[in-house]
Each structure stands twice: as structure tokens, then as C-alpha cells.
Amino acid sequence: MKAELFDRYVHEVGRRLPKKQRTDVEAELQSLLMDALQDRAKGHEEEASVEDQVAVLKEFGSPREVAARYAPPHRYLIGPGVFNIYLIVVAATAGALTIAYVVLFGLTAWSTSANAIGAAAGELLSSYINALLTAFGSVTLTFAVLERFVPASAWEKTSEKEWDPRSLPPVEDAERVERGGLIVSSVFLVIALVVFNLFPDWIGVGFVRSAGDGVRSWQFGPVLAPVFFSAYLLWLDAIWGVQLVLNVVLIRQGRWQLATRLVELALLLGGVVLIGQMLTGPSIVTLASIQSTELRDVLTRFVPGMVRFALLIALIATAGEGIAKLVRLVRVYVFRQETGTT
């Protein structure tokens, strides 16, 4: 007896429940729905109709009502009903600010003399961080006020009276591979492999230089230090190469499996180790190729620091992603298998 509507219903209830009770309640609900369906479709269990499923689900009540009974509503700063919208607004605001500051930086670089670029960039960076924090705070405050004064039911798309089990959204398959994202990621990996191995001189610092007569010229100097090539490039190639192979396998298979998840985890771990070594070892950048001593002095003041800062952010992000994936792996492949059989 297959009851696809039940899967969608159970998923809709489950996603409204706290994580710690979700899997167990989902398993029980699925079992109870099947009991009710079996009873309703006595004599023709094997071909219980969609109408039978709809009738059973209407008896149970809408996912929102049922979830609320399993987990009485908590007070949230920003509740689950609006959290997705909140994330979109935060991301859109941060994106718009970033674009605005990149444009602003371009204009500043164009209109500032070469030896003042460092100071101007520092000022802009500090103003950018301030703007990001202010925007984040304002958006959060606005949503918190909405959460406090707008009833949660206002965010529901349909009223409970109109609830029709047939309108339940399909269950997202968490293990399904997003091919588009993987193709884009593979293209970038190939570009990175080609540039870092064949054209490493393309990676450097570009700047506009004003000559004494007011003529501006674009100058560029490669920055990767010899230690980058002798100590790290081989490992970077290995990580990117395996990632590329993994992408190809995933695109062909269409779904994540335990083996591919483990390879992904190993790659993240490799990334953490490599970034950690770059961060603690000798600097991977050198400004020796910049001819102007004056400019080199200015750049030396902030470029190595910025690179280390970027590496630190990358380290935190990679480690965070690795931990999240590990927790997910344990939950899906260890915890879920135990549920229902204990």
C-alpha cells in the first residue's frame, strides 16, 4: 500500500517540530496514518485511493494544527513561520550593500592617488562592516517586532477551513544532487586549476597609478610567494582534483550516497588542514614584484594581514561546514536507521 500524500503530510508536520522530536514523531505519525487508512480501506487495502488518504488526513487536521499540538508554540525572536523570509531579506540586504561598496571602492580607487589607496580602502572596509552590522540589526529588529505583534496564523497561506490535503507540497529530497550548482562549481574548479598551475602570474594586486603629470596608468604585480608553490600547490591541486571527480560522479549519480558524503567530508577536513597550515606557516604572498618602493611599503602594511584574515574566515567557514555535514551524516545514517526499530 503506497500513500504518497501521507509522506508529504508527515514531512509538513515534521518540519514544524523541534529537531529532537521530529524523526520519532514522523515515524509514529506515518504508522498511525497507515493504521487509519487500512481501517478505512478495509477489503481493498492494496489499492487505497487518494480519496481515502484525503479523508484520513482531514480527520487528523492540518499539518500546522497537528504540529502545534505536538509542540506547543514557543516564544521566538523570529519564529519558524517567517524565518525563511528573514534569511532572504538579510541576504538581499547584505548583497546590495556589498555591490554598492564594491562600486564605491572602484570609484575611490579611480579618484585617489596611489599612496592614499591603502587608507581609503581601510576606511571603506570599516564603513562597510558598520553598514552590514547596522542593516543586520535593523532587519532583525523589524522582524522581531513583526513576530511580536503579527499573529503566526497571518503567515499561513491558506486558512484552516480551506485546508486540502491534495495541496500539500511534495517532499524535498535532501539527498538529491543540485546539478546546476555542481556544474558551476566544476567550471570554477577547472578555471582555478588552470590559473594556479599554468598562469600563477595572473594572481596579484592591480592598482591605478598617477604619474607626476596627472596621467593615470593601470599596473599589476603578481603576489604568490615561492612557498605557495613549493609547499601548498600540490595539495591544493589534489583537493580541487578530487572535488572535480566527486562533482562528476554526483552529476552522473543524481543522488548523494554514504560514500560520496564521506568523500565530501574528507575534502572539507583536507581543506581545514591546508588552510590551517597556510595560516600558521610563512606568508603565501609576497609584494616583491611591485616596483614602486613607496607603494610596496603601503601595500605591505595591509595586504599580508588581509590575506591572513581571509584565510581565517575561510578556515572558520570550512570547519563550520565540515561540522554541520558531519552532524547531518550521523543524524541521517546512524540516528534515522535506529528509529522505528528500537
Binding site: 493504521d35 480527520e59 487528523f60 487536521g61 499540538r69 526499530t341 528500537t342
Partner: peptide
């Protein structure tokens, strides 16, 4: 109402009044 009864069982268990366990005997867990 089933949508009321089943969550109530959970709550009573959380309050320490009921014990529960999964059984795999029968057509489904």
C-alpha cells in the same frame, strides 16, 4: 479527534505518566 489524541499521548509521556516503546511485531512499527 486523532489529531488531539496522539500528541496528548506524547505529552503524558513527557510528563512522566506513561512509558512507551516501539514494537516491530505486526504489519508496521
Amino acid at each position: 479527534d486523532q489529531g488531539t489524541l496522539y500528541p496528548l499521548l506524547r505529552r503524558l509521556e513527557e510528563q512522566g505518566l506513561l512509558d512507551s516503546e516501539w514494537s516491530v511485531e505486526g504489519p508496521r512499527p
